[in-house]
Amino acid sequence: MREAAIVGYVQGPQRRYAGAANESELIMPVVGEVMRQTGVTMQDIDFTCSGSCDYLQGAAFAFVEGLSALATVPPIKESHVEMDAAWALYEALLKIWTGDADVCLVYGFGKSSPGELRSVLTLQLDPYYHVPLWPDSVSMAALQARALLDSGAASERDLAEVVARSRVNALANPNAQLKGRPTVEQLLAEPAFVSPLRRHDCAPITDGASAMIVASGDAARRLCARPAWIRGIDHRMETGILGARDLTRSPSARLAAERAGVARGRVDLVELHAPFSHQEIILRRELGLANEVPVNLSGGALAANAMMVAGFDRIGYVAGCILEGKADRGVAHATSGHCLQQNLVAVLEA
């Protein structure tokens, strides 16, 4: 397999509401900045791939408008996933592994603020059995949280501790949307939102975009003194039949972590894409992480959760730590769908 590495990553501002800025205007600054930082021009890019959700804009092929942020003349090779951009990165890696590309631009964007996000995400579900009942994304997660609490694997205090740690970690992240120093007692005193979840157990609604340059071995060494090598990456999914899953476990995340080789070395940091506090507890268990490994130093998805970007941002954050020399080996996870249905795990090394 050809080597591949992340040589640049830029995250844009993470905001509750980006105002009149459209998707192209969210993308343009981050793409421009990642190209400036890496010295890559559009002519150097062999393949471009993006991740976003057309349902947020409410129009088929809405993602095409995102290409207005790029110079697409002369014509470029381009693709898109209707998933988190972590899967767009995977598609770019396929191009590199098969020898089709050496330098790839990957970006994710989500203007999550228009519309009612909880209900928009309902449309990801089975159209005959689920959608007519309008189970929203928070309610779906709350079903999972209750199952986890009932199983005894976590308590409401454990959930609050995840949130408190996220808020404190986010203080060091200038891009984080939610940050602070709430105590566990303060969090537990908050009323239920969709019981057993409180509002703070749920990721915020975020508008944002991020961009990355990923390159094959020789190109990566040419572009970057200390690339973040992708030493393992795997993604797995579970059945869409909600009742057939043990919601307290994530066998797909466990398998992806095994296949990506998480256990093959020391782990300096982990970024888990857990849009709900209880999901971090489930993922920690499945990835078999030692207790002392720092999790979500960025604040994670509870600090900012631009739709179809937040999983990609987990990979970007770990890559950034390696590029800056703050870490030598890190693990990043991304999820898509409801109740951790699909999971991707990547292992990055200096």
Binding site: E116, R118, S119, W134, D136, S139, A142, L143, Q144, A145, R146, A147, D150, P191, A192, F193, V194, S195, P196, L197, G243, L247
Partner: peptide, 10 residues
């Protein structure tokens, strides 16, 4: 087998 309570229906 599991449930959640929607305090404020959409």
């Amino acid at each position: 087998t599991t449930w959640c309570w929607v305090c404020e229906p959409l």
